[in-house]
Design a protein around this nucleic acid. Structure first.
Lengths: 147, 147
DNA sequence: TTCTTATTGCGACTAATTCTCAATTGCAAT
DNA sequence: ATTGCAATTGAGAATTAGTCGCAATAAGAA
């Protein structure tokens, strides 16, 4: 199957797990976010639509979505992990402003290539990689200078 | 001051903070680890040497060590952050085996250079950056193949 | 030596995540 | 269709990492 739901169904079946309405809703709602989201935002969005599933179900479903490669954890903010869909979008990394929390996404093919070269050197097979750069964004640097 | 302790004393003094025996022990013990460590390992090592300081003191001291640039958080394992000394050692990144937990350190100057170029493009000033690649190490790939 | 202010340990607290369990439900085999 | 079993669910209890408040203590500047 080529659709997102199809991929999830395939993954679950291969593990002897079930495709339930709850799992369908979680998948659908996660993919309705444009950028990254955390568990609380997901929970709120589900409940606003009167989909009253429990936190436990969300937490139990999350690893399946991550292991199936459909969702990935991208970084942490205030010690809360942020997730993002991992399908149809090209891979990108993040600049994270430690002052205002702004997130800048960027893509640098050459870095990806060099990473693959490193992995080859060690006979390592990548599942997932993450590059996060913390620092001060342009705006905040300006504000710091003016104070 | 050029020593590690000297740097820490300077940092504390500049902030109007005190250099206490507890902080000295924490610094010393952190630097006695060869690779990375987590808070629990640090606590155990201190207590085995009969240095009975409390978790609260460790947690309170940690940010000073990180902000002074002597220690850095390098990655998370089982949702626990791992720390590492950040002095005298060149910067490096990590391959993390998701099967056996093995950590491989590597250094790739070219990646560092490209990162700086990206930051310049966005007018971003780096405080800290981290690249972690999760996947399967050589050994585990072999074992998977043979099973 | 004195005095101010930061620091300490302790235990209570918080918030995120995981677990337990009884009731329910997908779905493969009849 | 029906059945049976293993996976799943929600609710709330339990766990865990990390933080906080407080009274007693101790750095270190004057």
């Amino acid at each position: 199957m080529d659709t997102i739901e199809g991929k999830f169904r395939d993954y679950l079946k291969a593990k002897g797990l079930k495709f339930t309405p709850e799992r369908e809703l979680i998948l659908e709602t996660m993919f309705s976010f444009h950028g990254h989201f955390d568990i609380e935002q997901l929970y709120d969005k589900l409940h606003k639509k009167n989909h009253l599933l429990s936190m436990a179900t969300i937490y139990r479903t999350l690893p399946y979505l991550i292991n199936s490669g459909l969702i990935k954890e991208v970084f942490r903010c205030q010690n809360r992990p942020q997730y993002e869909k991992n399908f149809g979008l090209p891979h990108h990394d993040h600049l994270i402003c430690v002052r205002c929390g702004r997130i800048i996404e960027f893509k640098e093919e050459e870095i990806e290539r060099l990473q693959e070269r490193v992995c080859k050197r060690f006979g390592f097979k990548t599942v997932e990689h993450r590059l996060g750069i913390r620092g001060y964004c342009k705006n905040c640097l300006q504000k710091i200078k003016n104070s």
